[in-house]
Design a protein around this nucleic acid. Structure first.
Lengths: 247, 247
DNA sequence: CGCGTATTTGAAACGCCTCAATGCTCGTGG
DNA sequence: CCACGAGCATTGAGGCGTTTCAAATACGCG
């Protein structure tokens, strides 16, 4: 059974991202309306979900996998401007061409709604509009946090920042605490990390090696990471160990 | 008469930012309600309007002047994460501590609403919530555009990007066309530009001198700028000359 | 006019990038 | 079962752009 097939006949009540997604505040009636216009689509790792400049015919939520928003300059320089995790929303009600490429970083399953009906539904469903506002404000905060990373942090701090975000998100979804060591698999290639951090992939590789040598992280293979001490990692990231990123 | 006094007794109907602000879509009833909870405050250039971490007791719109959102690391490195122009909204309904410092870059006049009443008003005024969503989505786009600037552009391109944004915004509010030469006063010091661009102030200065030497811009004094050819400037910014930034 | 602040300019140091070669892992086919 | 190739990752050497530190200059305001 494909990953998508798991979802095809499920209803919203069983949805794993229900409590965080754009539909989180909906009551039964509203869910039913949403359910009538939703459909699932899946994308393979590497596939482009939406091309910058294209018509967006649908909006939706990432249900499983990781997608990324990227901008590209004419000469090929690219910058990732957002990382879309399960429950994150894709698309922009009220605008019809996409401002960035949306790419599947891993295999991705999305819960889609045709854009027109969704917009109409939103107009008379304050719960959706309100939740979308909340989510957009959160994303804006995240984007601004990232501006500090891009503008002012060193390569080492950038890597530490990225690892600490992934580590904390991972710990939060898997319900493990933030004390003791955290273990996870990097969902990104070195190149994708570089595109996110505004670095070259060589620099990413070198800094990861350096963090490993200094005992801040441990690696098994290329992707399996252990963080023995999150506080230490966050110091390396230049964040004060309490506040920092809301994940 | 102070700048603030100009506004103190004015009503929303005369407001210069009415058509772009959070209240843009409000009808007469809604305006009246807003009017009953609004008040004006003014801030001098350099003053901090809101401190990061503080309670936010109000939200509001910038009516005149320029404010900036900045983040600061413990060691003093700072990154500006937003530039607030007249009509931009300050504050975040649904959250009560400020995530960044808000500083007056020039003298600023704000139209404020106490946060609680504003939130309540928003709950039963879809026009406000809807407009705020639109504005937040626009800001998110702007933040993401800026991530490309911070992550991937050279110092020269960064300066050109900033000048081109200011030039186009200025041309759009003063209703002049984008053809022919554009003239404006820089509202930012070299240091503020550096904080916005993730550079040092020396690099900003050098790159401005270089653009001047190459005839891309002309300077009279330190702040008065002439752009003889916007297309040329946008090439220098690395943007394709048609699309680029929606201002 | 003179002081304080903003800005410009210079020289040297440093960090990241570029180019290039090597290593590792995994899947495929001989 | 091993050889091979395709990606992905690591490592090295050298160059370039930006920062750092330092000093000189212009500007605005009393």
């Amino acid at each position: 059974m494909t990953v998508k097939a798991q979802f095809d006949h499920s209803n919203c009540g069983d949805c794993p991202i229900r409590h965080r997604a754009v539909c989180a505040r909906c009551d039964a009636d509203e869910l039913e309306e949403l359910e009538s216009i939703k459909y699932y689509r899946s994308f393979e790792a590497g596939q482009t979900i939406i091309w910058s400049g294209d018509q967006m015919s649908f909006v939706g939520s990432v249900v499983a996998g990781i997608a990324s928003l990227t901008q590209t300059m004419e000469d090929g320089r690219t910058q990732m401007v957002g990382l879309l995790l399960p429950s994150d929303f894709v698309g922009r009600p009220g605008r019809d061409t996409a401002p960035y490429d949306v790419q599947a970083t891993t295999d991705v399953v999305m819960c889609c709604f045709r854009k027109k009906p969704f917009e109409e539904l939103m107009d008379h469903t304050p719960h959706i509009a309100h939740r979308l506002l909340q989510m957009t404000l959160d994303e804006l905060d995240a984007a601004r946090e990232w501006m500090l990373v891009l503008g002012r942090k060193t390569a080492r701090e950038k890597i530490a920042s990225l690892l600490s975000i992934i580590a904390r998100r991972d710990a939060s979804v898997s319900q493990k605490g933030l004390t003791g060591s955290i273990v996870f698999d990097l969902p990104l290639t070195r190149e994708a990390m570089a595109d996110y951090l505004g670095l070259t992939l060589e620099t990413v590789s070198r800094q990861i090696s350096a963090l490993k040598k200094d005992g801040v992280i441990t690696l098994e293979g290329k992707r399996h990471v252990t963080i023995p001490d999150l506080g230490r990692l966050m110091e390396e990231a230049g964040d004060d160990s309490d506040g920092g990123f809301p994940v």
